[in-house]
Write a protein that binds this DNA or RNA. Structure first.
Lengths: 159, 159
RNA sequence: AGACACCUAAUGAA
DNA sequence: TTCATTAGGTGTCT
């Protein structure tokens, strides 16, 4: 069973630079950023990246402190596919592009994927590591957008 | 012309503690609470309290962000009195006791009363003040019901 | 079907 | 403290 913690960050939500990251509990991590977004987009991107980075048949457990991201990817997704992507109050589902990419990634992965919510800010080691990576990625994205830094852009993969 | 903003609150609607409040634009306010109810009951109690607290002949304008409360007290009330308190779909009118108390308060007041709907959550000063008072009253009622606080119960009147 | 309101929850930030 | 992002629900009427 592969276990991966994810987290997203958004500086000055909404509209600020965003960053996301995943950390495999057995080792390995990755992060990425974009010049603008929302906290929810960052959380969803983290989940999507975690799934895509761990293909194969081995069961995968994705952990996030975002109930929004966890429920989007698990319990709400099937309902939305059935009802034409409508919210309970009749409006359109937000961030639909990302949610559909998660849906597709789940369909394409031969092995099962589980989603688990973990509370944030209570000292969970891997959550805090993902948090730090996501925050750093967001700050890099902000600097890159400001043209302040060397353009060594985008996804960084760690050991 | 006396202008009074009203608001109601219900924690964990339905069934939670409720609070209600009115705020006179010229100064003065009051609030009260009960251990259980619905959001609509809280809104109706707020307008009832506002009417009863402002007797006399001077025209009174009652403002609320609840279309339900405003229409109950104005356009629906006369129809319901005529038709035996039946809803348009044939069912019984809910919260009838409160609605009849509002009817009576209106009848007894020598001066005219107007009802005006104002949109919520758009920064209206008096609406927000009433909202804060109603929320505080609901929280007090919950604490009192839990026996957590000193029993300095019920209606609070402000300057 | 529409409208308004009342919440609940988690996260992200300033 | 206060703001935003998002979802789920109920209370009530027409």
């Amino acid at each position: 069973m592969i276990i991966v913690s994810t987290d997203g960050s958004c500086l000055h939500n909404p509209g600020g630079a965003i960053g996301w990251a995943w950390v495999n509990h057995a080792g390995g991590s990755a992060s990425g950023g974009a010049p603008s977004g929302t906290n929810q987009i960052a959380e969803l991107r983290a989940v999507l990246a975690a799934i895509e980075a761990h293909p194969g048949s081995e069961p995968l457990s994705v952990e996030s402190d975002s109930i929004y991201a966890i429920k989007c990817a698990s319990e709400w997704l099937p309902n939305w596919r059935r009802n034409g992507w409508r919210t309970s109050s009749g409006g359109p589902v937000r961030n639909l592009d990302l949610i559909r990419r998660i849906d597709q990634a789940l369909t394409e992965r031969p092995g099962p994927v589980r989603f688990r919510w973990i509370r944030g800010h209570v000292g969970d080691f891997f959550n805090e590591q993902a948090d730090a990576l996501a925050g750093a990625a967001a700050r890099e994205a902000r600097a890159a957008a400001a043209g302040t830094t060397d353009p060594s852009a985008e996804p960084v993969t760690g050991r």
